[in-house]
């Protein structure tokens, strides 16, 4: 059983489990699935700075902060207890393209030649690690949700705005992937 769990999970298995988080959270506590709002609650808790967007009772949303703490622990469990002994198997075409733009490390889930402390203060590292993170935080709040809040929860509830947001997530990601990353 453990051997089976250690292998990478098939997309259909993962998709079903992720989809089930929508009814699980609704039934367990009448909560809508969505992770990026945790960042709003953290701002509200630590540094509200008298900004009206952060003046609300964040403690009533504690469940969301506990959930993301769980995601962090789950990341550790997934990578250690259920450690996949093989390197990630990505498409050959993606791999050869990435090699052509200077990526050499394919052993981990992220290219360690981009995402490392040594790289943080290089131009490339700053763009991928710091600037990218800023856009994730700013963009998800401006859009009112992220992949979980819009693309999973919103689409599950057949919300047209969530479809618009999801199309824009994909468009934005495609623009950077095709037109920016090759030149960074």
């Amino acid at each position: 059983m453990l051997e089976l769990l250690k292998q990478p999970w098939h997309w259909s298995v993962a998709g079903v489990i992720i989809g089930l988080f929508v009814p699980l959270l609704l039934i367990v506590g009448n909560k809508t699935f969505g992770i990026s709002s945790s960042m709003r609650h953290i701002c509200a808790a630590i540094f509200p700075a008298n900004i009206s967007y952060f003046k609300y009772n964040w403690k009533a949303e504690s469940w969301n902060l506990v959930f993301v703490a769980g995601v962090l622990i789950g990341g550790w469990v997934g990578a250690h207890v259920f450690k996949n002994p093989e390197p990630i198997a990505i498409a050959d075409s993606t791999k050869s393209y990435l090699q052509s733009i200077g990526i050499q490390e394919f052993g981990a889930l992220v290219p360690t030649d981009l995402f490392s402390w040594e790289n943080l203060f290089t131009f490339r590292g700053f763009i991928f690690i710091v600037f990218g993170g800023f856009l994730v935080g700013f963009g998800t709040r401006y859009a009112g949700g992220c992949t979980s809040g819009h693309s999973i929860m919103g689409l599950s509830n057949l919300q047209l705005p969530s479809l618009i947001a999801t199309i824009c997530f994909m468009a934005g990601g495609s623009i950077v992937t095709w037109l920016v990353i090759p030149y960074l």
């Binding site: 993301v68 995601v71 469990v77 997934g78 990218g132 998800t140 979980s148 994909m170 990601g173």
Partner: peptide, 26 residues
């Protein structure tokens, strides 16, 4: 607008908010 900006960040970091927490855990 926010969707496009998040998309830019998603492609750069390879992570939406959930995966950022998971990466730290890994």
């Amino acid at each position: 607008f926010g969707g496009l900006l998040f998309g830019f960040g998603w492609a750069l970091t390879g992570a939406c908010p959930g995966p950022i927490y998971a990466q730290i855990g890994i």
